[in-house]
Design a protein around this nucleic acid. Structure first.
Length: 462
RNA sequence: GUCUCCUUCGUCUAGGGGUCUAGGACACCGCCCUCUCACGGCGGCAACACGGGUUCAAAUCCCGUAGGAGACGCCA
């Protein structure tokens, strides 16, 4: 039987980074086994689900290069099927109507908690077979309460619980809508899912779901529960930590290659390998290599990976990715300057935002000069800059190498260190003392623009 | 509270009884390169949660303890 897995997000927000990893693991598992990767949108919580969220989930998955086979299943379209299954269970005695009111149950629960006991539905209606007119009953499953249930989880290993831990879960609410527990089981069965790979917050749900599978006499799929991702402080990763969704990281200037490499290595490993291509990931991925312990999200490592993928990317593709982060319209000449300067800035940027920031030197003259520049604005520096202007004017073609040589000669002649001249030029060209090589910048900006920027600096500090 | 799971450098991890004076990566620190900052190169710091077993031998197996996490909804 060929592998069929699914990723089943609820469109109640943007895609959490942990969910993105679940999607990636499912996708890799499917591709590794030559199986199918399906999508199911669990939108039955109509209050919180939106089509915008669904759209953004599709988009971010595409951005991460996670593609799916077959049409996505929209869970809300399957209500009738879910009801049908619940009613069948009712008919053959595997489920029953429960008339207990929510108030009644809340009281019982409160009492249990107060006396320090764990709460479970007490099966009043199952035992009494009561029927109360004027109340819409829920449908509950008759769960097995003796013996054990064991899940042979691919990631977690064998996990066993006593059936006495389970209570008679609700299949259909009093308004006739199915619960999550029912819907997942029915959908996974109908979609012929062979392996359910999801976050380990679902591990205990699995035992309940197995009861539903058994009641329906359906085959139980294999399960793999992967650990969650936590923030640096060990708490569940959330907005509180700054960024928690894949969209957040995209907007922060991370490359999809870097993000997916990072989340792949979070909780999964292949020996000492760190940089892993998609092809290698598909070849190497197995659930057995997923660790059982939860892991913490570490932004510095993501940044390092991102810088690696920035270095690896072609200058053209980097330019395309940088453009959306540049606020203003840019001309053809600015565009070609950025492209020529890309080699110089890509090693200095860890995110695309930083790339855009560095690229600004090729877009416009500095709007102001950093305080640090004043150190290189003394009378002597100004004189040196005037000499540099002459050098620029007389260097044809205006190339980095000869320019550098001539300025070095100037430094020797004037008996100053090269750094004194270079930093003054840098301040003039960029408005700050950190940038790529100043001679490279001059070559790219050309004579006119370079001299104009230096003159502005000279005038400003004269 | 009940049930379930987890615990190797700060972080992600390698490790399947002897090859572990515990390896790699990120971060951090030093040095080199150097027109600044990066990149790159070289080097350094740094961990088997604790306590008992089993064994000739334990990071590796077993049992406790402590700490952490998750689940206990007419949410998904």
């Amino acid at each position: 039987m060929s592998v069929r897995v699914r990723f089943a997000p609820s469109p109640t927000g943007s895609l959490h980074i942990g969910s993105a990893r679940t999607a990636l693991f499912n996708w890799l598992f499917a591709r590794h086994h030559g199986g199918k990767f399906l999508l199911r949108i669990e939108d039955t919580d109509s209050l919180r689900s939106t089509t915008e969220n669904t759209k953004s989930i599709f988009e971010i998955l595409k951005w991460l290069k996670i593609d799916w086979d077959e049409e996505p299943v929209i869970q809300s379209n399957r209500l009738e099927r879910h009801k049908e299954v619940a009613n069948n269970l009712l008919k053959n005695g595997a489920a029953y109507h429960c008339y207990c009111s929510q108030e009644e149950l809340a009281t019982k629960k409160e009492r249990a908690v107060k006396s320090g006991k764990s709460y479970q539905y007490d099966r009043t209606c199952r035992n009494s077979n009561r029927k109360i007119d004027g109340i819409n009953p829920v449908i509950r499953l008759k769960t097995e309460y003796s013996g054990n249930t064991t899940v042979d989880d691919i990631v977690q290993g064998e996990v066993t619980i006593h059936n006495s831990q389970l209570d008679d879960l609700i299949l259909l609410r009093s308004d006739g809508t199915p619960t999550y527990m029912l819907s997942v089981v029915v959908d996974d069965h109908d979609m012929e899912i062979t392996h359910v790979i999801r976050g380990d917050d679902h591990l205990t749900n699995t035992f309940k779901q197995i009861q539903i599978y058994n009641a329906c006499h359906w085959n139980v799929p294999k399960f793999g529960h992967i650990p969650l991702i936590y923030g640096p402080d060990g708490a569940k990763l959330s907005k509180r930590h700054g960024a928690a969704s894949a969209d957040d990281y995209r907007d922060l200037g991370y490359l999809p290659e870097a993000l997916s490499n990072y989340i792949l290595r979070l909780g999964w490993s292949h020996g000492d390998d760190e940089i892993i291509s998609r092809e290698q990931a598909i070849e190497w991925f197995t659930l057995e290599n997923v660790g059982k312990s939860p892991s913490r999200f570490d932004t510095p490592k993501l940044r390092s990976l991102n810088s690696h993928y920035i270095m690896e990317a072609s200058n053209e593709s980097l330019l395309e990715r940088t453009l959306p982060f540049i606020r203003c319209e840019i001309s053809e000449i600015q565009r070609s300057r950025i492209l020529r300067g890309m080699n110089g800035i890509k090693s200095r940027a860890k995110t695309v935002i930083e790339l855009a920031d560095l690229a600004s030197i090729y877009i416009a003259a500095p709007s102001n000069f950093d305080d640090s520049c004043t150190k290189y604005s003394t009378k002597q520096h100004i004189e040196l800059l005037l000499d540099v202007i002459s050098i620029i004017e007389s260097t044809t073609p205006l190339l980095e190498e000869p320019l550098c040589e001539y300025v070095k000669e100037l430094a020797k002649k004037k008996n100053v260190k090269l750094i004194e001249i270079a930093q003054a030029i840098r301040g003039a060209l960029c408005g700050k003392l950190v940038s790529p090589s100043v001679f490279e910048i001059i070559e790219i900006l050309g004579m006119e623009e370079s001299i104009s920027r230096i003159k502005r600096f000279v005038d400003y500090f004269k």
